[in-house]
Each structure stands twice: as C-alpha cells, then as structure tokens.
Simulated assay, not measured.
Amino acid sequence: MHLPYIAPTADAVLSQALLDAINNKTKPLGSLGRLETLAAQLGLIQRTTRVRIADPAILVFAGDHGVVAEGVSAYPQDVTWQMVENFLADGAAINVFARQNGCALHVVDAGVNHVFGERPGLLDRKVAPGTRNFAVEAAMTRAQLETALEQGMALVRDLPGTVVGFGEMGIGNTTAAAAIMHKLTGLPLSECVGAGTGLSAEGIQRKQQVIAAAVARHTDITDPLDVLATFGGFEIAMMAGAMLKAAELRKVLLIDGFIVTSALLVAARLQPAILDYCVFAHCSNENGHRLMLEALGAEPLLQLGLRLGEGTGSALALPLLHAAANFLNEMATFASAQVSTSAQ
C-alpha cells in the first residue's frame, strides 16, 4: 500500500522571519516562553507568519481488543461500546471539553465488538468486531491493517480545518500500546506497562506477563507495520493512518496520551518528519508515557495528571494553540505601539 510522504517543515528563511516577528512584539525576549516556540512551529507547518487555527476537530477512534480475554483490564470489554454510546449522548469528558473549546468531535467505530447500526454522529469504519487475542496469534491480518490505515487516511482527507486532535477508546488498549512501545523503543517492558483503567499491582504484573509471553512468541517482528499488526488495535492503526495523512496535508496534529502516542510512535518510525507537525498536549500519568515522549524527543504542553484518554488532553491544549496564533497575529510591535526597545 502507498503511505503518505511527509516533508520536513524546516525552512531557514521562514524560521528567521517568524523569530523576528515574535521578538518584535511588545515584550521582553522569550517572555512568552513555550507559546513562542509553539507559534514558530505553527508558522513552519502552515508556511506563513500569519497562522490560522481554523475549524479544529478531534477524532475519537474506538476499538476492541481480543487480548482482554487474558484478564489485562480492570473493566469488561462491554465498556468500550457503552462509552461510545456515552460519546454519542454527549455525556463524556471529551464532549464537555470539545464543546467548551469550540472543537468539532467525530466518533469513529474502528472495530468495536458491538452492532450500533446507523447512528447520527457515529462514523462506521469497522474493520472487524475487535482484534484477535495477540497472546495467541497476531492481532490482525495484513489486509486488516491496511484497511485500517486507509480508512484513517480517508477520514482526514475529507476533514476541513487546520488542526486535528486525536483520541481513543478501547478496553485493553493500554496493553496493546505498551507492547508497541516495548517493541519499537527497546525499553524494558516494566517501564512500558501501567495500570490502564486501574489495575492493582497484581493486575499490572499479570498484564506484563501476558505481553512478555506474546513478545517472546514474536521475537522476529521488528518492522513498524508488522509490530502494529501483531500487537495493535484497529483504533491504533486507524489513528496512525489518519496522522500520516494529516501531516501530509500540513495540518497541526494534537497528540493526546499514552495510546495516541503509541500510534504516533508507529507513524514516526515510518515517516520521522511527522514529528514536525505534532503538538504534544500533555504527559499522562500512565506509566510509560513520559518515556515514550522522551523517545520521540517531545515536549508536552501540560502536566495535569491526566490518564483518561478520549482526546481530553488534546481538547484542553487547544486554547494554547489559539493563544500562540493570536499573539503572533494580533499583538503590537514595538514600532506600531511606539514602545522603546531594550538598550541591551
């Protein structure tokens, strides 16, 4: 299958123009801190010194995981479809935060083990009713992987706006994400596995043992797409495809927590320049997320102790994108405001 090529955003001339525009605002140099580097990043993505945050949207991908049969989650699999119903009823945290911040929300059935039928607000892109149990066999076939990637790319192709945020829902998906992280970073499994939805210490140990046995069964799997097919979920694969397409279209990617970052990890191994387009919303409290961000060289905007998923971190970080764009576009310069510059 054809995967998008992602061009790096590096542009020395534009970088200098953005730096000059930022430094000429009525403020001491660097005094807006992280907002200044964010404004410069937005400018490089959009190839302009006048950036736009237009029609932002968050895609929430939902899918089930066969590995839940191994007792790796504190919650039953039915919670996946029940939470999708909650999204559709406008009752989840992501609904509240997206609405609060004027962000469109799209809920995608990538592979939930439930029949929803035609529902307003639900995008049916179901590859299959959940993955297979990767403790026994590969989570998905190569054909299913390619379908998920292509569906994700198509979703973004049809999406207006300059910013795409990513979220997910899927009981068992922290197990899949931890396995992907371990395989693609080489970090010890103990540093990749966490409590997920709230496992006890014994539950975390069980989860680690399940992943370790599965990894031992597939020691020869190293290619990023093979790792995704072996251990991933349909929602993770569809996110990876959507991310690649969004970056190809020079959209800003708002990256949420642990599971979303695992999808990006795959995408970045395929097209490293995708990282130029990513704004990392936060560092979650899920064990492993900080190390995954470090492996990607990422600097998150927020540290709020979140570990919910759903794209909630993406929605909460969106006002910071608006702030970065607005100060760059609207703040007075020393010359326009007739304010004296520093003598230093």
Score class of each variant (00 low, 15 high):
Ala7Met: 09
Thr9Met: 10
Ala10Phe: 10
Asp11Ala: 11
Leu14Pro: 02
Lys25Pro: 05
Lys25Cys: 13
Leu42Arg: 06
Gly43Trp: 02
Gly43His: 09
Ile45Lys: 09
Gln46Glu: 13
Val67Gly: 05
Pro76Ser: 08
Val84Cys: 08
Leu88Phe: 10
Ala89Ile: 12
Gly102Trp: 03
Ala104His: 03
Val108Phe: 12
Asn113Glu: 14
His114Pro: 11
Val115Asn: 11
Leu123Thr: 13
Asp124Pro: 09
Arg125Cys: 15
Val127Trp: 05
Ala128Gly: 08
Glu137Met: 13
Thr141Met: 01
Arg142Asp: 12
Thr147Cys: 12
Thr147Met: 13
Gly152Arg: 02
Ala154Phe: 06
Leu155Gln: 03
Asp158Val: 03
Phe166Arg: 06
Thr174Tyr: 06
Ile180Tyr: 12
Gly186Ser: 09
Gly186Met: 06
Leu189His: 11
Glu191Tyr: 08
Glu191Asp: 13
Cys192Ala: 11
Cys192Thr: 02
Leu199Arg: 00
Ile204Pro: 03
Gln205Phe: 01
Gln205Gly: 02
Val210Arg: 07
Thr219Glu: 13
Asp220Thr: 14
Pro224Leu: 07
Pro224Ser: 03
Leu225Trp: 08
Leu228Met: 11
Thr230Ala: 09
Ile236Asp: 04
Ala247Thr: 05
Glu248Ser: 08
Leu253Phe: 01
Leu264Ser: 01
Leu265Asn: 00
Ala267Asn: 04
Tyr277Pro: 07
Val279Gln: 04
His289Thr: 04
Leu308Tyr: 02
Gly309Ser: 11
Gly311Ser: 09
Ala315Ile: 05
Leu316Asn: 08
Leu318Thr: 09
Glu330Gln: 14
Ala332Phe: 10
Ala337Glu: 08
Thr341Gly: 15
Ala343Leu: 15
